[in-house]
Simulated scan of single mutants.
Amino acid sequence: MRSLRRGDSTSDRNGAIVSIKDICDLYNTDMIASIAFGLRSYSLRNTQSEIGSHCQDIFRPNMRRIIDFFVIFYLPKLVPLLRSKLFTESHSEFLRRVIQLVIEERERGGILRNDLIEMLLTLKKEADLQQDKSHFTHHQDFLAAQAASFEVAGIETCSSSMSFALYELAKQPLMQARLRREIREAFRRQSDDGSESLSYERIASMEYLRMVVEETLRKYPIVPLLERECTPTSKKRFYSLRPHAECYARRGMPIYISNLAIHHDPKYWPDPERFDPERFSALNKSHQVPMSYLPYGAGPHNCIGMQIGQLQIKLGLIYFLRQHQVELCDQTVEQISFDPKFALLASEHSIYLKIVDCYDL
């Protein structure tokens, strides 16, 4: 259990009590470091790693960052005037330095690895063959920005989703036992096929895992507010919302959709506060009202990272629950309250759970 402990964790002879979000942060930092930066960060082994520290900086709120986030998302036209930034200068320099070093190492050593860096190098080679000096791969900031987008979208969102899922599973031991049985069966079948690790197809076939993840995102949509712009299909300047509401939306008008409110509307989700993965069984999904489930948005502007985000969450839950189970403890909050200062959906208080070793899988 040593790899699960951080500075604020305690342990007893029955297991370790940890802030589960911290553990999920470390796992997702390792994942994004590998996917986006082409690096092995070993954050779960070394909680003070440089890349882990930098990745967490962007989500540590202070007054300046809260103002910057507000301007960027709600008053974007003022960004040049107020010079609002999503990243601090030190973090931006860190991203540029890391991406440049990794790219130079890849080009020098000829290493092939199926990740973002390899994709960028392929695009760069194609641009060189066409002698296109204006191609974005020749600009360092564009390269760093691609990795930064993975960092922003892939760490906090997935770690929060995982921690909420583990919290709910700790409250529902029978659900957790059912999921752990499915994990055990998946590894047994994979072993019968001659492989020790799970394939993508095997993970996709785990129905109860899918149901647990989808119900977690229903109850806790990490991006609780969707932003869109009114673009009527006709040439009219206004779009009527009748018969649903007695008002109009003007062309170009920003529209904010609370998917958190929709996900907790008893009209679409009976007893919405209850965590029930059965809502997403094959039979029940066929009866869902269209557009009532929006954790990734919908339509042509839905989340481009939906598939990789779901896979990241599923892999984390699989390998965590393969050898550990989560239980409530005296420090566990009775009910999740959301942090009003955070742009994403996050618990206001640390979620402490007891982690118990289980080697039956």
Results as ranks from 00 to 15, higher is better:
9 S>R: 07
13 R>F: 08
16 A>Q: 10
19 S>Y: 13
20 I>L: 05
20 I>Q: 01
22 D>K: 12
25 D>C: 06
30 D>A: 00
34 S>G: 07
41 S>P: 05
41 S>I: 06
42 Y>S: 13
47 T>Q: 10
48 Q>P: 06
54 H>Q: 13
61 P>C: 04
62 N>P: 06
64 R>E: 12
70 F>N: 13
70 F>C: 12
71 V>K: 06
79 V>Y: 04
85 K>M: 14
90 S>M: 01
90 S>C: 01
98 V>F: 06
98 V>I: 15
100 Q>E: 11
108 R>W: 14
112 L>V: 13
116 L>D: 03
117 I>G: 04
120 L>D: 00
121 L>N: 00
123 L>V: 08
124 K>F: 01
126 E>R: 07
128 D>V: 09
135 H>M: 13
140 Q>E: 15
143 L>E: 02
145 A>Y: 08
148 A>Y: 09
150 F>K: 03
153 A>M: 01
154 G>W: 04
155 I>P: 02
157 T>A: 11
168 E>L: 01
169 L>R: 06
171 K>T: 02
172 Q>D: 07
174 L>P: 04
181 R>A: 10
184 R>H: 09
185 E>M: 09
187 F>E: 05
189 R>M: 15
194 G>S: 12
196 E>M: 05
196 E>R: 05
197 S>H: 06
202 R>W: 06
210 R>S: 15
215 E>L: 11
216 T>M: 08
224 P>W: 03
226 L>M: 07
227 E>M: 13
229 E>W: 03
230 C>R: 05
230 C>T: 07
234 S>D: 15
248 Y>I: 13
251 R>K: 14
255 I>P: 03
265 D>E: 07
265 D>T: 05
272 P>A: 01
273 E>A: 02
274 R>M: 02
275 F>S: 02
285 K>R: 12
289 V>Q: 14
292 S>V: 12
294 L>T: 05
303 C>Q: 00
303 C>M: 00
306 M>G: 12
308 I>D: 08
312 Q>E: 15
313 I>E: 02
319 Y>V: 00
320 F>R: 05
326 V>K: 04
332 T>M: 07
336 I>V: 08
342 F>C: 09
343 A>D: 06
349 H>F: 10
355 I>L: 11
355 I>H: 10
359 Y>P: 05
